[in-house]
Design a protein around this nucleic acid. Structure first.
Lengths: 235, 235
DNA sequence: AAATTGACGTTAGCCCGCTAACAACGATTT
DNA sequence: AAATCGTTGTTAGCGGGCTAACGTCAATTT
């Protein structure tokens, strides 16, 4: 009943569980409809009703908030196997999304009507557990994101962001404990750390000089996690 | 089964539900133990195990993160009737909290061991629904907080923060739609908006000149919500 | 091969917000 | 009444990060 039993003692296992649950959710009943999007397509726009949820099958989706001036900030990146949508039972069908959901690469999603999703959940206790996992993981990530943004120096915000990204979506290097690789551009980092792209490049350059990260043109970013963690605790 | 049925179409109703659920959670079984704290007491510290959850009966609790230099940021304010604790099933008993929970006024909390909490949830479907509500509300608030922090100008961050606070914990003025009152100090605003206290005072002064808020020494803060919302959309 | 595109790199100048320090004022304590 | 405390108000000076505008380099397109 309570997901605890499925869960080891680290957060990473929990996140894996979340993805598994999400994968199992609708496929048994062959719910929904498969949709494909090219890079930079909008999956929804602010004026769209939030009457459906999505399961990302392949690719990445950024949830983006844009203010009146068109200033955009990335609220979240949703990856393969994860749920996408306002997962809130308080503001269902009638209300509007107030964000963009935009594919950052070529992406396939399974689109499920909200009412069908709810029906499915009602009949399946395991699905409810899965949903608890999703909320749990999302909340943790979002709190961490907010924590990062409260730091005022660019160095600190960027270092902390890289650490979080490395922990949540980094691919470890063949059994080495330290470095993990990330695929992320400077302008994406800028939107996530609330900095300008130019200053991200400058700051990343300094981190590279210190050996905390390494990257080159068209090479993945390698984050040296233990050293970066140490850097944060004494800056 | 699905909380949707309990829930009207606005977020405020949902939040009320959350509090009601939290109130009903453990009291039927007389779980836990009542504890009292004076102002500025620590309910937990970073090195404490996260083996229990709390229900705030009276008062306010701030969840605070402090880095190595003692720089403190307020992650959340938990109010009367709300759940306090790492509500995550992934990192239970063994792990440590990495934050402070500190009463901002005289506070009473009901302390419930994590294992008892889980037992209770296993037997009570309504409690599980309540938990879903809690997650839902928390996630929404936290995302909004992160969104606020991504803005770079002090004016914008502070305006948006005031609007959020007014929406989530403002007391409306006798049937007037516009202004709501808040009890919050400048240094608290500073910690939430990631600014210095001095600059909060300066910025608040400007907002006051424009008639968007009004306050005086030892008077509650009055936020003029519609005008403030308009101010944001054209700054 | 040439042109175009997309991403990283660099710099000058400016402005915002921080630090630090102190003043003003009300409330509470002694 | 005097002193202390907590909160808001104010300012000078400085530094960090932004804007804007370019340059560089590799990959892709034509």
């Amino acid at each position: 009943m309570i997901p605890n039993q499925f869960c080891a003692d680290d957060h990473h296992t929990c996140q894996t569980m979340t993805e598994l649950m999400a994968r199992h959710l609708p496929q048994g009943k062959s719910l929904g409809r498969l949709r494909c999007y090219a890079k930079n397509d909008d999956i929804w726009r602010p004026e769209a009703p939030s009457d459906r949820v999505y399961l990302v099958q392949r690719g990445h989706v950024a949830v983006v908030y844009a203010d009146a001036q068109g200033h955009e900030v990335v609220l979240r990146i949703v990856e393969e196997g994860q749920l996408l949508g306002e997962l809130c039972f308080c503001t269902p069908e009638q209300s509007l999304r107030e964000t963009f959901a935009r594919s950052t690469v070529e992406t396939e999603v399974l689109e499920v009507k909200y009412s069908e999703f709810v029906n499915y959940l009602q009949g399946d206790l395991a699905a409810l557990q899965g949903l608890l996992f999703v909320f749990c993981t999302r909340l943790g990530e979002t709190e961490r994101r907010a924590e990062i943004l409260m730091y005022r120096s660019a160095d600190e915000r960027l270092s902390r962001l890289l650490l979080q990204l490395a922990e949540t979506r980094g691919h470890p290097h063949k059994a080495h404990p330290g470095p993990v690789t990330l695929h992320v551009r400077h302008d994406e980092l800028a939107q996530m750390a609330a900095m300008s792209r130019a200053h991200v490049t400058v700051t990343m350059g300094k981190l590279r000089e210190q050996g905390l990260v390494s990257y080159e043109r068209n090479r993945p970013l390698i984050v040296n996690m233990p050293q970066l963690a140490a850097h944060i605790n004494k800056s």
